[in-house]
């Protein structure tokens, strides 16, 4: 596997929020992490990013152990993250947001930005506007584009469709599918489980901090028990 996290255990204070969680994702694959509220989905993602200290577990990227790297060093290794909230620089222009995304890249920034404008045409029109003035869906696109500016191998998205309308949600998922074409490994935490599984290659379902189910997207979608319990019938 290109990216794998095994036996993750950790939490805040003395309480373990996730226990023995395992996830992996390959290049060109979309993998969703699903589950009810409070199952530890976002916590698991923070653990993979190194924002949360782990008690146990190991994380590998392209055969390299990155368990003990700081968040910033993991980013240098090729992981990029789109947080759920506050995921853009609201006071900077759209273009400056993208430039900041490429802070670590010295070269080809302008060509990279052009690439993003091709991927997300709507934000090209708004490039000199302050990002805070954009609509919810546009902001989300800026956020994803900013994360892609680092040229990541692994892209992590924390609930990219939280709080947007169904139309915008479809649009964002379409963008995620497009990104997949670039041979990037995509890992996303989602609340809208069914729609997420429809575009996912595989999915994990977390319950109270543990892996409960995992499998191919259509398998999870079609399993009666899972549908009933997690996907709303």
């Amino acid at each position: 596997m290109f990216f794998s996290a095994n036996n993750l255990t950790g939490g805040y204070g003395g309480v373990n929020i996730i226990e023995d969680c395992c996830f992996n994702v390959n290049r060109g694959e979309i993998v969703s992490i699903l589950g009810p509220n409070g199952a530890g989905k976002s916590t698991a993602m923070k653990a993979m990013l190194g924002i949360l200290d782990l008690k146990n577990g190991e994380i590998n990227l392209n055969g390299k152990d990155i368990t003990n790297l700081r968040t910033q060093d993991r980013i240098k290794q090729g992981i990029s993250f789109v947080p759920q909230n506050k995921n853009i620089f609201t006071e900077l222009t759209v273009e400056e947001n993208l430039e900041m995304g490429a802070f670590l890249n010295e070269k080809n920034i302008s060509s990279k930005i052009e690439e993003m404008y091709e991927l997300f045409p709507i934000i090209k029109e708004k490039k000199s506007q302050t990002a805070g003035e954009l609509s919810g869906g546009q902001r989300q696109q800026v956020a994803i584009a900013r994360a892609l500016m680092t040229d990541p191998d692994v892209l992590m998205l924390d609930e990219p469709t939280a709080g947007v309308s169904p139309v915008i949600m479809d649009e964002i998922f379409q963008h995620v599918l497009n990104i997949k074409q670039q041979n990037i490994a995509i890992l996303m935490v989602e609340q809208n489980a069914r729609q997420a599984l429809e575009i996912s290659d595989r999915g994990y379902i977390l319950v109270t901090g543990k892996n409960a189910y995992e499998g191919k997207g259509d398998y999870l979608l079609n399993d009666k028990e899972i549908r009933k319990a997690f996907l709303g019938g």
Binding site: K76, P83, I88, F89, M100, R146
Partner: peptide, 23 residues
């Protein structure tokens, strides 16, 4: 300048600045 912009970015959103690799 890049440094100046990164200063504004840090002032605007510290966490995201860290995620973007700003020191």
């Amino acid at each position: 300048t890049k440094t100046g912009k990164s200063m504004r970015a840090y002032s605007d959103n510290e966490d995201l600045a860290l995620l973007s690799g700003i020191d």
